[in-house]
């Protein structure tokens, strides 16, 4: 498999595009014509060939450009990457998990050669070659978590497990849907989910935590989450709200198809063997409404979901003001025909 990497931006002139292949493999998150929270988790043990579920860490055409965008965010705000002192071992766990997975899943792009603790890592797309000693921080240019997540798409929350809870004690967060690592660091599962409406009353978080605490080595899990973003922005952070928040007011009936994006997160969960911690990678996929409606089933269904989603959710997800515009646009692609079950195109 060869990937043609895009040269594109996620800011200023927004040259981000999805190829036809990227549109076809987009993780459309709605399996029916309506949406409500659920503990929608399943095993993360591969998926259909070519789909974003196939590999443990999906690498796609946006890889190089996403990594450039991450470096820009970190230059401006180093606090997007933090690790409390007891999380270094979990950082090594994560480095090992990603290097082993990528070198096995994409042997043409990544290589890992191990001789005891002397490791040799080759990342061809980014042109990186690094010899280092595993578990010796002084042999890498950054700490282990920062080193490997500067080379891996998606945000990463590194969680400590203790006292029957999970604690957000480290992370690399530059492509987030309006939450802040700097604010959440050190919080437990219930604390960092406190702003989410409705789900607490539904008992969602209690059940989700119970599920997560029991995820074992070799048994990773995954789920999807979604929101709406104006412009193909990766960094929709509270820290930079003054830069992107106002862009939400630039939607018009003429530009909504190009400027309004459905933002889907593939969230995966892996138990980390040495630290007994967990890593929670949150990978962001963006698709413009204009591209999305090229799959007729998705156009019909998204119209129905956005139209009917409860007001609290639309407010929390930040698109309540633009909902009429979005629904108007999507209604043109909904002929009322029935849709088939499941997320895949017909």
């Amino acid at each position: 498999m060869t990937i043609q990497f895009n040269d594109e931006t996620f800011r200023d002139d927004y040259t981000f595009t999805n190829s036809e292949r990227a549109i076809k493999r987009f993780p459309f998150p709605f399996h029916e014509d309506s949406y409500m929270y659920s503990v929608n988790m399943e095993q993360h043990q591969g998926g259909p060939e070519g789909s974003i579920y196939e590999k443990r860490f999906d690498v796609d055409e946006h890889y190089i450009s996403e990594m450039k965008d991450r470096a820009l965010v970190l230059d401006e705000d180093p606090l997007r990457c933090q690790s409390l002192p007891h999380m270094t071992l979990a950082g090594w766990d994560l480095l090992e998990l990603i290097m082993v997975s990528k070198s096995e899943d994409y042997p043409d792009l990544f290589e890992l050669h191990r001789d005891g603790n002397n490791w040799h890592w080759i990342n061809k797309p980014l042109g990186i070659e690094q010899k280092f000693v595993f578990m010796d921080e002084s042999t890498l240019p950054y700490g282990p978590m920062e080193y490997i997540t500067r080379q891996t798409q998606g945000d990463f929350a590194l969680l400590d497990q203790r006292d029957e809870n999970l604690w957000m004690d480290a992370g690399m967060v530059t492509t987030q849907a309006d939450w802040s690592l700097d604010f959440d660091i050190g919080m437990n599962f219930f604390e960092w989910h406190a702003p989410v409406p409705k789900a607490h009353e539904m008992g969602i978080f209690k059940r989700a935590l119970k599920f997560l605490l029991n995820i074992q080595q070799g048994m990773p899990a995954r789920r999807l989450n979604w929101t709406m973003t104006v412009n193909p922005l990766l960094d929709t952070s509270p820290e930079n709200y003054h830069k992107w928040g106002a862009q939400k007011t630039t939607l018009t009936p003429e530009n909504v198809g190009q400027k309004q994006y459905l933002r889907v997160e593939l969230q995966t969960f892996f138990r980390l063997p040495r630290s007994n911690g967990m890593v929670f990678p949150i990978r962001c996929y963006l698709i413009s409404l204009e591209d999305l409606v090229t799959i007729p089933k998705w156009g019909r269904r998204l119209h129905r979901v956005i139209r009917d989603v409860p007001e609290e959710l639309a407010t929390y997800k930040g698109f309540i003001d633009n909902r009429p515009l979005i629904v108007d646009y999507l209604s043109k692609f909904d002929d009322g025909a029935p849709t088939s079950d499941g997320v895949w195109p017909d």
């Binding site: 002192p85 007891h86 999380m87 071992l89 400590d160 497990q161 203790r162 074992q216 080595q217 070799g218 048994m219 063997p273 630290s275 007994n276």
Partner: peptide, 12 residues
């Protein structure tokens, strides 16, 4: 079975 840890060290 794969290893399961219900008695982990508190690394803090």
């Amino acid at each position: 079975s794969y290893p399961v840890n219900l008695f982990a060290l508190d690394l803090r």
